[in-house]
């Protein structure tokens, strides 16, 4: 195999060492990335295509898919609006407490998914702060769709804002000020100047937000109550099927989520080649 040192310098490691290092890397990646990915699809298709098709078409599965799409749509939209507001406020103005605000926006990344669900149970659960009031007024949040949306919103809150803030900050406020001097209104500035400037970063944030929202398990699991056909999202449905030893069906639904992950990665690579400014920073 052809392995070139990226930078031609006479002090780079020799070809033997290079081959060894690359070999270790490939073995590690095969064991930890490729095998799990392959396992999902091979288990899902182990009984043939028709069984696979049945597993996805079964009513509980389709209702889980519908719920996942609904929850994802809602939470991504909410966090998109939030992300735009937050990045506009942070990048275009200076005000006291700005760094604190940025830190707080990142906060959900460092909270365990289970705790992200737990906090809503503490607020809205039967024994929670507003539990009695909610029961008296017949509002259901925990073990119902609103709770699932809230938990997903919390977990995916930072994605869009975090992507947009550095891009908008790097662009400064010159364009917007110029548009203002030309008589543009606030909305005109936003839609005709700012948005085109940040569209790739925005798409990138939405893409990551979407992937996490569809796949969130821990937080949703705590608030959902696992009611089949009612409050079961796709990842929760995978769990139920798996725990019922219905492995083929579990992996069939899982394979849809794995496909989503692969599409996300492909789009992400595409967006990164479009916009080299997109920071490749790690995120929780």
């Amino acid at each position: 195999m052809l392995i070139q040192a990226h930078r031609a310098t006479s002090i780079a490691e020799g070809p033997t060492l290079r081959r060894i290092l690359l070999g270790i890397t490939l073995i590690f990646l095969t064991l930890f990335l490729l095998f799990p990915l392959a396992a999902v699809f091979s288990e899902a298709l182990s009984q043939g295509l028709s069984v696979y098709w049945q597993a996805i078409n079964e009513p509980d599965a389709t209702s889980a898919i519908r719920l996942t799409l609904l929850v994802t749509g809602l939470s991504v939209s909410l966090n998109l609006v939030f992300g735009l507001c937050a990045s506009w406020a942070v990048a275009k103005f200076s005000f006291p407490g700005k760094s604190l605000l940025i830190t707080l926006i990142d906060l959900p990344f460092s909270v365990s998914p289970v705790i992200s669900g737990l906090i809503y149970v503490l607020l809205f659960g039967a024994h929670g702060l507003f539990g009695a009031w909610l029961k008296a007024n017949d509002v259901e949040i925990i073990f119902a769709v609103p709770g699932i949306v809230l938990a997903t919103v919390f977990v995916t809150l930072p994605f869009v804002a975090r992507e947009l803030i550095p891009i908008m900050e790097a662009q400064g406020r010159g364009d917007e000020e110029a548009a203002r001097t030309l008589g543009a209104s606030g909305w005109q500035i936003f839609f005709r100047v700012t948005l085109p400037n940040v569209k790739w970063g925005l798409l990138y944030g939405v893409l990551l937000c979407n992937a996490r929202a569809m796949g969130e398990f821990g937080a949703v699991s705590v608030v959902s109550g696992h009611i089949r056909g009612m409050t079961n999202t796709m990842p929760l449905h995978v769990e139920i099927l798996y725990n019922e030893y219905n492995f083929v069906a579990a992996f069939a639904v899982a394979s849809l989520l794995a496909l989503l992950a692969l599409v996300t990665l492909a789009l992400k690579a595409l967006l990164e080649s479009h916009n080299t400014n997109t920071p490749n920073a790690p995120r929780l």
Binding site: P36, L37, A39, V40, E43, P113, L208, A211, M214, G215, E216, F217, G218, M234, P235, L236, V238, E239, Y242, A250, F251, A254, L257, A258, L260, A261, L262, T264, L265, K268, R283
Partner: peptide, 11 residues
């Protein structure tokens, strides 16, 4: 980052 954790878990 992209693969839902439950899927990773069962795989």
């Amino acid at each position: 980052f992209a693969l839902p954790t439950a899927v990773a878990g069962i795989a």
